[in-house]
C-alpha cells in the first residue's frame, strides 16, 4: 500500500475519481500547470488535460457559481478555493444557490458539487491565510461540511464527497497536510459521510475535535493516558449534518466532554455540539461540557498565532479541571 500524506490523499482521490468518471472536472486558481499552491492537484492536468483540470480566471464567486452550473448539467465539479480566507465570495453562491437548487425545483435540478479549501492556522502565512470559519458553512441547510483529519480520511471522504448527490464543502486542515504519512490503499473505497469517527477509545472523558486540532488532541490523550486518564477522541469529520449519536454514546460512557477547535469560541461549531450534549446527554454528565478554542479575537499574524491556537497544555488544563469537577 502506498504511503500518503493528507494532501497526498486529496490528490490520490481526485486522480482516482477523474480516471473512473469523466463527469469529474477539477478547477480553481493555479490548480492546472502549477498543481495548486499546496500541490493538491499536482500532475492532474498532465494526466487528464486542460479541459478537465482547468485554471480559472482569478474570481472565487465565478468558481463557485460555475460549479453550480456544471453540477446542474449532471457533471461532478470539484472546485478549489486557494485559501478559506478567500472563500467568502463563494458564500453567496453556496447560500443562495448550491444549497437550494434541489429544494427550489423540487428535485428537478440538483447540485452535486464539491468546494475544497484549505483552512486553519499555524503555517506562518500572511493575513487571511489562517482562519477557521467552518461554522459559517456549517450553518447552511442543504450543504454538507466535511473535514478530514488523516490521510486515509482525506482520501476516503473526498471520494464520498465527489460521489455525493448534494453539495459538499470540503475543508482541508493545511497545517497537517504533510505532518504524517499513512498507508492508504488507493482502491477507490469511499468512507461514509455524516458520521463521526472514534479515533481513540477511552472511558473517562470524551474529547471532540476536527481538522488539524486532532493532532494536539491525540497528543493530549497520550499524555493523559500516562496519568491514568483514559480519553476517548472523536473526529467529527462531518459537521453538517452532525452525527449526534456517536458523540452522545461516548458521553454516556465517559460522563465528561471537552470540545476542541481552532475557531473563535462564540458561535463556533463547538457551541452546537455543547448544546446537543446539554439537550440529550445532560443526565449522563459528571461535569460541565468545556471548550478549548481560539479566542474571540481576530486571528493574529504569525508572531502571535501560537498563543491563539489551542495547545496541548490548554487541552490538558481543561481536561484536568473537568476531571476534578467530579
Amino acid at each position: 500500500m502506498p504511503e500518503m500524506t493528507l494532501v497526498g490523499g486529496v490528490n490520490a482521490a481526485l486522480a482516482y475519481e477523474m480516471a473512473a468518471d469523466d463527469r469529474v472536472l477539477v478547477f480553481g486558481e493555479d490548480i492546472g500547470v502549477n498543481g495548486g499552491v499546496f500541490r493538491a492537484t499536482e500532475g492532474l492536468q498532465q494526466r487528464f488535460g486542460p479541459e478537465r483540470v482547468i485554471d480559472t480566471p482569478l474570481a472565487e464567486g465565478l468558481i463557485a457559481g460555475m460549479a453550480v452550473g456544471l453540477a446542474a448539467q449532471g457533471l461532478r465539479p470539484v472546485a478549489e478555493i486557494q485559501f478559506m480566507g478567500f472563500s467568502y465570495p463563494t458564500l453567496d453562491q453556496l447560500i443562495s444557490h448550491a444549497s437550494r437548487l434541489r429544494n427550489r425545483t423540487r428535485g428537478r435540478l440538483s447540485c452535486p458539487m464539491v468546494l475544497r479549501a484549505p483552512f486553519g492556522g499555524g503555517i506562518h502565512a500572511p493575513e487571511h491565510h489562517s482562519e477557521s470559519t467552518e461554522a459559517l458553512y456549517a450553518h447552511i441547510p442543504g450543504l454538507r461540511v466535511v473535514i478530514p483529519s488523516s490521510p486515509a480520511r482525506a482520501y476516503g471522504l473526498l471520494l464520498a464527497a465527489i460521489r455525493d448527490p448534494d453539495p459538499v464543502v470540503f475543508l482541508e486542515p493545511k497545517r497537517i497536510y504533510r505532518l504524517t504519512k499513512q498507508e492508504v490503499a488507493d482502491d477507490g473505497e469511499a468512507m461514509p459521510l455524516d458520521v463521526c469517527f472514534v479515533v481513540r477509545d477511552g472511558t473517562d472523558i470524551t474529547l471532540v475535535t476536527w481538522g488539524a486540532m486532532i493532532h494536539e488532541t491525540l497528543q493530549a490523550a497520550e499524555q493523559l493516558a500516562k496519568e491514568g486518564i483514559s480519553a476517548e477522541v472523536i473526529d467529527v469529520a462531518t459537521l453538517r449534518p452532525l452525527d449526534t449519536e456517536t458523540i452522545l454514546e461516548s458521553v454516556a460512557k465517559t460522563g465528561r466532554c471537552v470540545i476542541i477547535h481552532e475557531a473563535p469560541r462564540s458561535g463556533g461549531f463547538g457551541a452546537e455540539i455543547a448544546a446537543v450534549v446539554a439537550e440529550h446527554g445532560l443526565l449522563n454528565l459528571l461535569a460541565p461540557v468545556a471548550r478549548v478554542t481560539g479566542y474571540d479575537t481576530i486571528m493574529p499574524l504569525l508572531k502571535l498565532e501560537q498563543h491563539f491556537l489551542p495547545s496541548v497544555e490548554r487541552i490538558m488544563d481543561t481536561v484536568h479541571k473537568t476531571m476534578e469537577f467530579a
Partner: peptide, 15 residues
C-alpha cells in the same frame, strides 16, 4: 448570480 451558472452550463455543453 445566475451569470456564473451560465458559464458552468456553457462549459458543460462545450466539454
Amino acid at each position: 448570480t445566475q451569470a456564473p451558472h451560465a458559464v458552468g452550463v456553457g462549459y458543460a455543453f462545450k466539454y
